[in-house]
Amino acid sequence: MIVVRQKPIAEICDMIGRHSRVLLVGCNTCAAVSLAGGETEVDTLLQFLKLANKRRATYTEFGPAVLQRQCEPEYIEGLEHEGYDAILSLGCGAGVALLSEMIGKPVYPALDTLFIGAAKGLAHWSAECSACGKCVLGETAGICPVTRCAKGILNGPCGGVSDGTCELGDRPCAWVEIYERLEALGRVEQFKQISSPPDNSTRIICEWDMTKPGDES
């Protein structure tokens, strides 16, 4: 799923400060599971913003709403936003974008979109995919070097590994993990294969329309 994180309240206040009525819109899919955009988070943020009103001597009024998914037109069509002069989206970047396109009012992001990730525990997610458009997980025992290696190396660990930890110090070395998992799967021969430079042209894909005829490759 898309993992998101709420922006600092001060940053949110600075964005919406000049509006008199702001509708907070949650997103009940990724952002809700990410504990940043569900009904509870919408209500909590609303209370915080009311408190901030007092402290900042502003008079913005707030209302709550939650959409099933902000990234699909059919859900946005049902959003009642009359009487509000701005939207504060608690969705990922795609949600903010589609709301902006459809609503015709200023839409502001309450969240920062971090990565495509997997749950690793309570309120804990790890980045697992960078949406690079050219999946190599079949060669790397399911551990993405584009995402998990800070340098996106495709051919093994750099010299910065220290006791199996990345030189950034915040994560295990992806290539040590890949090597160990390939070994455990009896596939270590795979490691000997030199991976060619990545095809970065897939990274500029900005639209995918299955109904349009494309090339057959």
């Binding site: 093994g156 660990p157 010299g159 090597y179 490691f191 030199i194």
Partner: peptide, 22 residues
């Protein structure tokens, strides 16, 4: 370059081999 005292060593050695091949 290669790091002879890398920990763990096997993936470092495997990469060393790739560098030779490259």
């Amino acid at each position: 370059v290669v790091t002879p005292d890398a920990n763990p060593l096997p993936p470092q050695l495997a990469k060393f081999a790739k560098k030779v091949k490259a």
